[in-house]
């Protein structure tokens, strides 16, 4: 009877102490895919500038770069949450507080790809109002200092093909077709692998 009692107590203790992890996915993978491929979460640099100048408190800028980079320069009113500490208790509280205050989070790094992964993570763990700055801090600075013109858009979105790849590759001919090519035609030679190591010298 003692054994049975102990057994039951152990199980109950186990159930009681089982803690749910603090950070869990709220979106399924399918929902996540749909939400990260919709273009609605991009905040343009012009819009960001407007928000910053108007000191619009509906947005909270989050700088995911390292503290060192943050000190060297950041958007006014931005909060530094380095990527590596995204889920630390303290930072998570800041994020939750912003959500509670119905603020939109705007993530930015030096370039957009730096903020991309944390942005996706936050969306997947259930934050609904998370935006990502097109381009990022470095591009934003360039845009601010240069007279705004439409050409800068090209530099901002990393996913725009900057070249016509097919034309570029077609345009330059293969070496064989170049008359008077100086070197021998075979450019890439794979040297055969040397015969594998010498036979192991045996024991006594």
């Amino acid at each position: 009877m003692v054994a049975a009692g102990l057994f039951a107590i152990l199980i109950i203790i186990g159930l009681l102490t089982m803690r749910k992890p603090a950070v869990r996915y709220k979106l399924t993978v399918k929902e996540a895919l749909a939400s990260v491929t919709s273009p609605g979460d991009q905040l343009s640099i012009d819009k960001a500038n407007e928000i910053i100048q108007a000191k619009n408190s509906e947005y909270l800028f989050i700088d995911v770069r390292t503290p060192y980079e943050f000190i060297k320069g950041h958007f006014d009113s931005a909060v530094n949450i380095p990527l590596s500490n995204l889920f630390s208790e303290e930072n998570y509280k800041v994020l939750k507080q912003a959500e509670h205050d119905k603020k939109s989070l705007v993530l930015y790094g030096n370039d957009q790809s730096q903020a991309n992964a944390p942005w996706m993570l936050l969306k997947q763990i259930g934050f609904t109002k998370v935006l990502i700055l097109s381009g990022g801090y470095a591009v934003a600075n360039v845009v601010r200092s240069v007279v705004a013109d439409s050409t800068h858009e090209k530099g901002i979105d990393a996913e725009i093909a900057r070249y016509n790849y097919a034309e570029m590759v077609k345009g330059i001919s293969k070496p064989e077709q170049v008359p008077g090519s100086i070197s021998n035609p075979q450019k890439v030679t794979t040297t055969p692998k040397p015969k594998s190591s010498a036979p192991a010298a045996g024991g006594c």
Binding site: S183, N184, V188, T191, P194
Partner: peptide
């Protein structure tokens, strides 16, 4: 001028 794919280093005989 040729791109040489590095041959594997020969290990010394055991």
């Amino acid at each position: 001028q040729n791109v040489l794919v590095k041959p594997k280093k020969n290990s010394s005989p055991a």
